[in-house]
Design a binder for these strands. Structure first.
Lengths: 243, 243
DNA sequence: CGATCAGTTGAGAATGGTCAAATTCGGTGG
DNA sequence: CCACCGAATTTGACCATTCTCAACTGATCG
C-alpha cells in the first residue's frame, strides 16, 4: 500500500507476514482518524456501549479509580495498540481510558472488525495474537506488583516499555522519549510518587537508567535485565513468523 | 439434554440463553474427560504447543515463578472455567497451570472449538464473554495488588471467589468450602504467609469472615464490601441476558 | 511575575516482612 | 483407640521497605 507502514502494521508483521490484501483491510481500519487533546476521556468505567479504537499517534492510558480516590493505571498504550478491544464483547467497560498526550485514533466498529476478519482470516489471527500479548503483559504486571521490590518494578516497567516501543520504531538501543511523569509511574507500579523519585535517583546514580526531561536512557541492559528478572519471552516477539 | 447442567453451562447461561443446539455443542466439548491428581502440571510456562481444557470438577491454579523462587499465583480456577484458553492463540504458554485438588478436565482442541463456534455462533459469543470476564478479573487483581491494603486484599479476594462459586452453585450466602491454604492466599495476594495469617485472625475476631478448616464463612457482607471496595460490576453478572 | 505543576529531599511513622519457635490438625499405622 | 508424622497454622520479637507529611526547588506559561 501507500507510504510508510503504520505502527500497527509494524507490530502485526512481527507475528505474521501480511500480504497486500491484509494490508488493505488493515488500512481500512485506520482510515477514520480523529484527534483528541491530552486528558480527553475515550471510555469511562461502567460506560454502557463502549467503542474500540486503534491508537495511531500519541500515548494513552487505561486505569481504574478506587472509592478512596487512588488510581491504579492498568497500562499505557502506544501507537499500534488497540484501545478498549475487550469492551467490544463486554456489556460495559470495566475501566477508563484517556489520552495522555494529544492523540490520533481511528474508531473501529464491531461489525467492521468482523467483516474485515472474514475477508482476511490471517489478519484476524494476528489481531487476536496482539490481544493475547496484551493479556500476557497484564499477567506480567501482576507479577510485578505482587512479587517485586520497588526498584525491580521500575526497571521492569521501563524495559518492557522500551521493548514495546522498539517494535513500532519509537525506541532504539540507547532509550526512548517518554511523556510520562513520575506520578504516572507511581500509579502504574503501586508506589508513592515520592518513592518513585527516590528509586529513580538511585538508578540514575548507579548509572543503570536515567528517567529525565521526557527521555529514558538505558545504561547497562545486561545488569538491568538481571536486576528486574526481565525475560522478554512473554512478549512473544522472538519466534518465527506464522507463514 | 441429559441430567443436571454442568458448571460451564450454568455460567454461560447467565449471559446468554442457550438452546438445545448450543447445549449439544457444549456437551461435545465436555465429553473427553480425564482426571488428574493434586499437583499435576497441566501446562508449563514456556511450553510450546499448550493445550486448553475445561475444568469440570475440582480446583486448579495458574502461576508464574520468579528467578528468586517466589511464586505469583495469577488466579485459581473453579469448575466451569477454561484453562489455558489464551495459549490456543499464543505460540507458547506464558504461565504454568496445575491441579490444586484432584480434578476432572476435558481437553479442547483449537479446531474443535472453532468448528463448534461456527455451528453455534451464540455459544461463541458466550465463550468470548467468559474470556473477557476473566480478563476483567485480572485487571481487578491488578488493582488489588497495586492499591489495597493487606486486609482489603484478603476480603476482596474472598468476596470475588464467593461470587464466582455462587454462579456455579458451589457457594451460598453464608460461605463456601475452600481447599486453599494460607500459603495460596499469600502467593495470590502478594503477601507473606505470616501476614495473611494475622489478617485472617483480625477478620475472624472482628466477626467479618472466617477462613478455617477448609471453609470460608461470611459475617456481615455489607461491611465486607465496604471495607474492600468490592463492586461486583466487573464480573458482569447482573445485566439482562443477551436474547 | 505570580501561579502551577513536576520533581527533590528530609524526618518520622507504619504496614508488612523475616526468622524462629510453638501448636494444632488430618491422616496413618500399630 | 492411640502414638506419631508432616503439613498447615499460630504467635512473638525484631526489622526494613515504603508511605506520609511537609517544605523547597525549578521550569513553564499566561
Amino acid at each position: 500500500m501507500s507510504g510508510k507502514p503504520s505502527p500497527l502494521m509494524r507490530k502485526l508483521a512481527v507475528y505474521v507476514t501480511l500480504g497486500d490484501m491484509e494490508l488493505g483491510v488493515l488500512e481500512r481500519f485506520q482510515r477514520n482518524v480523529r484527534s483528541f487533546p491530552p486528558r480527553h476521556e475515550l471510555t469511562h468505567e461502567g460506560q454502557i456501549k463502549p467503542a474500540a479504537f486503534i491508537l495511531l499517534k500519541g500515548w494513552a492510558l487505561s486505569y481504574k479509580l478506587q472509592p478512596s480516590g487512588d488510581r491504579q493505571i492498568i497500562d499505557f498504550q502506544i501507537p499500534g495498540d488497540f484501545l478498549g478491544m475487550r469492551s467490544v464483547l463486554f456489556r460495559r467497560s470495566d475501566h477508563s481510558i484517556e489520552a495522555l498526550t494529544r492523540i490520533d485514533v481511528s474508531e473501529v466498529l464491531g461489525e467492521d472488525l468482523l467483516q474485515g476478519f472474514s475477508e482476511a482470516p490471517r489478519l484476524a489471527t494476528a489481531v487476536l495474537w496482539a490481544a493475547s500479548r496484551d493479556e500476557a503483559m497484564l499477567v506480567e504486571h501482576l507479577v510485578n506488583l505482587g512479587r517485586r521490590t520497588a526498584e525491580q518494578r521500575v526497571v521492569h516497567f521501563l524495559l518492557e516499555l522500551g521493548a514495546r516501543l522498539k517494535l513500532v520504531g519509537m525506541a532504539d538501543a540507547t532509550g526512548f522519549s517518554c511523556p510520562l511523569t513520575q506520578f504516572h509511574l507511581a500509579d502504574a507500579l503501586g508506589l508513592s510518587p515520592v518513592h518513585v523519585n527516590r528509586v529513580l535517583r538511585q538508578l540514575r546514580e548507579a548509572k543503570l537508567v536515567t528517567f529525565r526531561h521526557g527521555r529514558v536512557t538505558f545504561g547497562c541492559d545486561e545488569r538491568l535485565r538481571g536486576l528486574a528478572g526481565f525475560d522478554i519471552g512473554y512478549l512473544d516477539q522472538e519466534g518465527p513468523k506464522l507463514a
